[in-house]
Structure formats: C-alpha cells, structure tokens
C-alpha cells in the first residue's frame, strides 16, 4: 500500500491516507508546486521585459556611438542625421522635448494641484465619486485624437490670438499635453493628500485654523513627497508622449526653447524615421536607438525618483 505523510504527521510517523486518496493527494501537491513555479515565472517575465529593453537599446545604439562620440552626442546643437554631413547633437531634440513638457507642466501643476485640493479637502464624497470616473475617461482618450485636436483645433484657435504662431509649434501640443496629464497628476496628488491622517487635520482645526490654512499648512506639507512624485511622474509622461508632438509639433530639429516655432522632439524623431524605410544597418537606423536610449534614461530617472518619493509617503503614514 502506498502512503504519504504530511509534515504534521511525519513527526508521529503515522501514515494517514492510502490508495486512491494518496494518489489524489500526491497529484494535488504536485499541482500546488507547479502552479507556484508557473506564477513565479510570469512575474519574472516582467523583469525580462526591462532587461530586453535595456539590451536592445544598448546593442542597437552601440554602432552609433562607435561613429559619434558621446561628447558630440551631448554637446552638438545640430541634428541632421540624413544630411551629407550628418551631425548628431541630441540636445536639439531634448530642448524641444523639455519645452513641450515644461508647457504641459505649467498647465498641469496649478490645475492638478487645485483640483486635488478641491477633491481631497472640499468636495463632498458623492462629488468625488462622480468626478473620478470623468478623470478616467479623460485619461482614456487615445493620444492620436489629442494630436488631431492640437493640430486642427488648438493651433488655429491660438493663431487668432498670436499672429506669429506657425502651423507646427510647441505651444499647442504642450497645452494639450497638459490637459492630457492633468487627470494623472491630480489623482496621484489627491491620493497623497488623502493619505494624510485625519488627526493632523483635526489638530489644525483645534488650533483655530480655517479649512484653507489646514490645506495649505498641514495637508500639503505632509503630502509634499507624494505631490512632488505626482508631478515628476507627470513630467516623465510628457517627455515620453509621442503622437501629440508627432502630429502637431513638426519635424524640424531646431535647437532652442521657442514655443511659437515647430521643432522635433525625441519621440517625434523616432516616429518620423520609423515612417520612412530605414536601411537596417545605416547610421540613421542606429540613431533612432540612440535617441530612444536618451529618452529611456531621462524617463527612467524621473520614474525612479517618483517611485521612491511615493513609497516614502506611503511608509510615513
């Protein structure tokens, strides 16, 4: 007779089950083990995605950096990859990227903070419950639609106020992107504010603070790391956003921070090159990966800072 023992009755040395029961239990234990391994593999696969990204970006930009020095890449102010005399100064693309992201944040920080304070400190729970879905819907709009809106609605509208605005410019996509990241920054900073314990607010009220003073002097300082994280993560999204700038910001790599002119951002450059037929082993092909690597490094550093700031405010309370 076959018999198995479980860890509990191994001590007593008494076999509990036999025959069909034992076969069932052994098969069950096997499934239990196999399932836990499979689930672990799935979780580990997510790490492989990151490894794959880093591997591909480095492998495919190495041939680029063999021809262009890192110094030239970081200091040149021209980006002319398909010209006879090609020059590769990534700061050209970075300057446009930062300009658009800066405009987006100039919209998203005050609006997002105002909305978060309202939702967390002023709004009734029923209002808050109704508003969150609206924000999610705003987040769900495809970015290509926002791009269409920036190019064919916002730009013509702005041109009636600003006569010198070119058809492709950084201002319109920046403003639209600000609206795009607003739901995200507002909901992350609201989470941070709501995580502040009631007791702190009550202490403020007990001292005779008004609601506004409680928000400004108690809640915001207490939630500051979380709020900062919201805007750093928002910045990261704006830097990595692609379709809005690919449609509305134009494709000329210009170094500078003028929002009224069009300029190519890192992401817009990648799209532009991918639309054409790139010879697989050309320097233009590898320059796409070098630009991608620069983008990845920028967003990764923002994301990591944001991650640890968020984790810190979670730990404090």
């Amino acid at each position: 007779m076959t018999s198995i023992t479980t860890s509990a009755d191994r001590d007593s040395g008494m076999p509990l089950y036999g025959g069909a029961d034992a076969r069932f239990l052994r098969r069950r234990a096997l499934w239990n083990r196999v399932a836990s391994y499979l689930l672990f593999l799935a979780a580990a696969a997510s790490v492989l995605v990151t490894v794959g990204i880093v591997y591909v970006l480095i492998r495919d930009s190495l041939p680029f950096f063999a021809k262009v020095s890192l110094l030239e890449f970081l200091t040149d102010t021209q980006w002319t990859p398909v010209f006879e005399n090609a020059r590769f100064g990534v700061m050209t693309l970075v300057s446009a990227t930062l300009t658009v992201a800066g405009i987006a944040l100039a919209v998203a920080i005050p609006a997002g903070l105002g909305l978060a304070i309202y939702l967390s400190e002023y709004a009734r729970p029923t209002v808050r419950e109704a508003v969150k879905p609206l924000l999610e819907l705003l987040e769900g709009v495809p970015t290509v639609v926002y791009g269409f809106f920036a190019l064919l609605f916002v730009t013509p509208l702005l041109q009636t106020f600003i006569p010198g605005l070119s058809g492709f410019n950084l201002l319109a996509p920046g403003l639209v992107m600000g609206i795009m990241i607003l739901p995200y920054t507002a909901s992350v900073s609201e989470d941070a504010m709501r995580a502040v314990p009631m007791g702190l607010r009550e202490a403020g009220y007990a001292l005779g603070y008004s609601r506004f003073r409680v928000a400004a002097k108690v809640v915001i300082p207490a939630a500051l790391s979380g709020i900062t994280a919201a805007f750093i993560l928002g910045m990261s999204r704006a830097v990595g956003e692609t379709m809005v700038v690919a449609i509305a910001a134009g494709q000329n790599p210009n170094f500078g921070f003028n929002p009224l002119e069009g300029a190519s951002t890192i992401t817009a450059y990648i799209v532009q090159m991918a639309m054409g037929d790139l010879p697989h082993d050309s320097i233009a092909y590898h320059s796409v990966f070098a630009a991608g690597l620069a983008l990845f490094v920028i967003t990764l550093s923002f994301n990591l800072v944001g991650f640890f700031l968020r984790r810190r405010f979670r730990e404090v309370y």
Binding site: I53, G240, N303
Partner: peptide, 25 residues
Amino acid sequence: DLIEINVSNLAGVPSIIYGLLALGL
C-alpha cells in the same frame, strides 16, 4: 522588491520604447 520596482517602472516606460524593443528584438 526587484519585481515590484520593475513593474512600477515598466508602467512608466514611454510606449514608443516598447516599439523600439519590438523593432530590435
């Protein structure tokens, strides 16, 4: 910890980087 940081970082990787991963890999 590593897997968790990784997942939260992946959520923030720009979508176009996934495109480059797919193109190269």
